[in-house]
Amino acid sequence: MITIIKNGEVYAPEPLGIKSVLIVDGKIAKIGEIDESLYQKLDLPVEVIDASGDVVVPGFIDPHVHLIGGGGEGGFATRTPELQLTDLTTAGITTVVGLLGTDGTTRHMTSLLAKARGLEEEGVTTYIYTGNYHVPTPTITGSVKDDVILIDKVIGAAEIAISDSRGAQPSLHELAKLVAEARIGGLLSKKAGVTHFHTGPGKEKLGLLHQLLEKFEIPPIQLYATHITRSQELVDDAIALANKGSYVDITCSKSTPEWIAYFKKHGGDLSHLTLSSDGNGSLPVFDDKGQFIGLGVASPYTLFEQAMETVRTQDLRLEEVLPLITSNTATVLKLTSKGRLAENYDADVVVMQKGTYALRHVYAKGKRMVEEGLAVVKGTFEK
């Protein structure tokens, strides 16, 4: 199948102007002037999408999703369900990274790996982190390093909990050893080997990560902290960490646009900021004594929703916000064929109406998953 998305305003994520995108065999073959009649003469199936009046952008990357569900902090009945294919595609997400959360006892790394493989078979690109909140952290092979080296989909460790009553309260040296294992695994397998940290509401904030950089031979890019918008003080700490060269991640919510604007205004390095949805993770609510009092479920759709709301409501251009859900994420995770519209990159493409940013079409590896806002490819057990 050959697909031509013509006459759209292309953001790669930097603005390229009005151009056409040629997709051949799941890859972007050309961006620019394309004579569709030449390809139609080849007697091959050619699909032409008129994107006049639309913007054409890279497929979104969500670096923090609970593919097999999360939660359980309120008992067994509060375990959240597994994610389905269209939960991702109808939000423009074409690449996703799965992880475990609090529960590494009744949820298993092998189940997470199997779920990731299943979603890939259904059409999107998937990766996973090894581990969960706790240190020592659960793995598949018995070693963080070996998981990263030997298992194709494992690109790092996560989500290791710091500054949170639900974490294992690891020592600085324990964290350093874990981060080093992930990094060595990454070096030996040409992967990111990052350690993705769950940051809780505790008083220490990101202090342990600053200490790791100060006291150990750990490159800043190996540290990737999420949930950084729990307080203004935590965001300030995240700005300081990002400006040292680490990456930080905002979990999307209704306050995300204001936090992105705050991050930029107060000197944060936007090239080291990403967004994630925490999709299908639980949203537990605790009182001031640490007692569980309520629960919600995060939606992957918040990634797209809040990124576009930032463009609508803040003094930030589309080309400033798009990297937070495309190229920045690809950079920190070393996803070398993702996050950009460029020749020989995977044909992960989202077409949106200009101005409203309503989703029209979503392509994952060249296959149309969403047409005029509706899923045309569904997961195996979706109706």
Results as ranks from 00 to 15, higher is better:
residue 327 S to M: 00
residue 302 T to V: 14
residue 288 D to G: 02
residue 166 R to F: 12
residue 105 T to D: 15
residue 274 T to P: 07
residue 348 D to V: 01
residue 245 G to I: 00
residue 362 V to R: 02
residue 52 S to D: 09
residue 156 G to N: 02
residue 81 P to I: 05
residue 316 L to S: 03
residue 12 A to L: 04
residue 142 G to Q: 10
residue 381 F to V: 12
residue 16 L to E: 12
residue 175 L to E: 01
residue 118 G to R: 13
residue 377 V to M: 01
residue 263 F to T: 09
residue 267 G to Y: 07
residue 268 G to C: 08
residue 357 Y to I: 03
residue 297 V to E: 10
residue 278 D to F: 03
residue 238 A to Y: 07
residue 317 R to F: 13
residue 313 T to W: 11
residue 72 G to S: 05
residue 42 L to M: 13
residue 30 K to P: 02
residue 4 I to L: 13
residue 200 G to S: 08
residue 143 S to H: 00
residue 248 V to T: 08
residue 372 E to T: 13
residue 254 K to R: 12
residue 74 G to L: 06
residue 174 E to Q: 12
residue 33 E to T: 10
residue 379 G to L: 08
residue 151 I to A: 03
residue 274 T to C: 02
residue 326 T to C: 09
residue 258 E to K: 10
residue 365 K to P: 10
residue 301 Y to V: 03
residue 176 A to S: 15
residue 298 A to D: 13
residue 340 R to P: 04
residue 83 L to C: 07
residue 39 Y to I: 12
residue 368 R to K: 15
residue 158 A to Y: 02
residue 359 L to V: 15
residue 364 A to K: 01
residue 237 D to L: 03
residue 232 Q to W: 08
residue 55 V to T: 04
residue 5 I to N: 14
residue 307 A to M: 01
residue 336 T to I: 14
residue 214 E to F: 10
residue 363 Y to W: 12
residue 96 V to E: 03
residue 68 I to D: 00
residue 233 E to R: 15
residue 340 R to T: 14
residue 311 V to R: 01
residue 358 A to V: 08
residue 178 L to P: 03
residue 337 S to W: 14
residue 211 Q to N: 08
residue 179 V to E: 01
residue 184 I to D: 14
residue 372 E to C: 03
residue 46 V to C: 01
residue 200 G to C: 01
residue 274 T to K: 12
residue 217 E to R: 14
residue 307 A to N: 04
residue 29 A to V: 11
residue 25 D to Y: 05
residue 56 V to A: 05
residue 40 Q to D: 09
residue 259 W to M: 10
residue 261 A to Q: 15
residue 370 V to N: 04
residue 37 S to G: 02
residue 8 G to A: 11
residue 19 K to V: 03
residue 177 K to C: 00
residue 122 E to T: 00
residue 138 P to L: 02
residue 29 A to M: 05
residue 225 A to E: 01
residue 1 M to D: 11
residue 301 Y to R: 10
residue 191 K to H: 13
residue 303 L to N: 06
residue 40 Q to S: 15
residue 353 Q to M: 09
residue 380 T to A: 15
residue 256 T to R: 00
residue 113 L to R: 08
residue 224 Y to C: 06
residue 209 L to D: 00
residue 17 G to P: 05
residue 22 L to R: 04
residue 172 L to A: 05
residue 275 L to Q: 14
residue 155 I to H: 00
residue 291 Q to A: 06
residue 71 G to C: 01
residue 221 I to F: 14
residue 224 Y to W: 13
residue 8 G to Y: 05
residue 340 R to V: 12
residue 51 A to E: 07
residue 188 L to I: 00
residue 346 D to S: 12
residue 244 K to H: 01
residue 265 K to Y: 03
residue 124 V to Y: 00
residue 190 K to V: 00
residue 324 L to F: 01
residue 52 S to G: 07
residue 130 T to D: 02
residue 233 E to P: 00
residue 23 I to R: 03
residue 201 P to E: 07
residue 230 R to W: 09
residue 114 A to G: 05
residue 237 D to C: 06
residue 74 G to P: 02
residue 63 P to M: 09
residue 218 I to E: 02
